[in-house]
């Protein structure tokens, strides 16, 4: 059953595939246009792209068209197979992340109840992109990209831990790994007997959200955590040797991952596709839900890119120190406190 229609499995699969492409490409495109092109332009007192389409809204298509025509250069010294494989891993990760994200009561790619692992699966799958990045840096056989890849590996594994541990607080509160039931838990929850707006975990898990947002910023390698791609230090990091379309694919992967993480954050902390006042089981939520989720994703995307364009880059040792000596202990304290409060109340 999908959207109230009786469909064969292959028909459902086609619908799902189209759905996941929309889920990956629409937020990624929106993020790039609204934040990377326009918001940063206004922050820097300029207009940004204005020529392609009304207010430059077709600029993205122009960029893709340009990248399509660029020559594809693979360095002679590079490991050709791995070099070409890397972008596939980075982009595939994003599609796999969206598998468990619910967009409405029935707007889901899989049966979350049966699938079971939910957020745990997200954390597992989202770390695959690290392998893609290391592969890209290693296979390029360039010193800059090797350095960039090592930095990326060091940074991504250091911030993977706070990311995973900050989620545990939400799991303790909701008592489930299933994202759909985490949303229901937030919608039907109460704060000391007052349930008018449910219990969005941004209120009770605020420390968890802060850790999650910081770790997310680092996982996406956005400034202030962009040492892996620091152009003034390692030229471009792991994608120095990539040209044209393959170079663009890394950026599509980056912004699509930003979208995926925003969707996860919105689901975990802001109540996902649900808003106070809306019916949790109503059929119209299958249409309204995705829009609500997209709006919440835009909030998180706005924060990510606002920070990116506001703060300067950290130093490599500051970055590692911050993760190991501050974020991880804080996340452990958060887990402990949440567990104690959950058992006591």
């Amino acid at each position: 059953m999908m959207l109230g229609l009786e469909l064969a499995y292959w028909q459902e699969s086609i619908l799902r595939s189209l759905g996941v492409l929309a889920a990956v490409l629409l937020p990624a495109g929106t993020f790039v246009y609204v934040f990377l092109f326009k918001m940063v332009s206004f922050m820097q007192n300029r207009l940004g792209p204005m020529e392609a389409g009304p207010y430059g809204s077709m600029q993205l298509l122009a960029e893709v068209g340009k990248a399509l025509q660029k020559e594809d250069v693979v360095p002679d010294a590079a490991d050709r197979t791995l070099f070409k494989m890397a972008p596939y891993l980075v982009v595939a990760t994003v599609l796999l992340t969206y598998v468990v994200v619910p967009f409405g009561p029935d707007m889901v790619f899989i049966d979350n109840q049966v699938f079971g692992t939910g957020i745990f699966y997200v954390m597992a799958v989202s770390s695959i992109s690290v392998i893609g990045i290391i592969l890209a840096g290693w296979a390029s056989a360039s010193k800059y990209s090797l350095l960039g890849a090592l930095r990326a590996a060091g940074q991504l594994i250091a911030y993977e831990l706070p990311l995973v541990l900050s989620v545990v607080g939400v799991v303790i509160q909701a008592g489930t790994l299933d994202l759909q039931r985490i949303i229901v838990a937030q919608a039907t929850g109460e704060i000391f007997g007052w349930g008018a707006i449910g219990n969005p975990f941004i209120l009770t898990q605020f420390i968890g959200l802060l850790i999650f947002m910081i770790a997310m910023q680092a996982e996406l390698a956005q400034t202030p955590f962009d040492m892996p791609v620091a152009e003034s230090e390692v030229v471009g990091g792991y994608h120095v040797e990539y040209t044209g379309l393959r170079f663009l694919l890394f950026f599509i992967g980056e912004f699509a991952t930003a979208g995926a993480f925003s969707a996860i954050a919105a689901t975990l902390f802001l109540g996902g596709w649900w808003l106070p006042g809306l019916d949790l089981d109503a059929n119209y939520m299958n249409v309204v839900g995705p829009l609500v989720l997209l709006a919440k994703m835009m909030v998180f995307g706005g924060i990510i890119f606002f920070i990116r364009f506001t703060y300067p880059r950290l130093r490599e040792d500051q970055l590692q120190r911050f993760a190991w000596k501050f974020l991880i202990p804080l996340a452990l304290v958060n887990i402990t406190a949440t567990g104690i409060l959950k058992v006591v109340f």
Partner: peptide, 18 residues
């Protein structure tokens, strides 16, 4: 297993897209 087949299909879609 069907739910995990969806995971495999999405991986396939990613490869096909690229």
């Amino acid at each position: 297993l069907r739910n995990y087949l969806t995971v495999a299909i999405f991986g396939g879609v990613a490869v096909a897209l690229l």
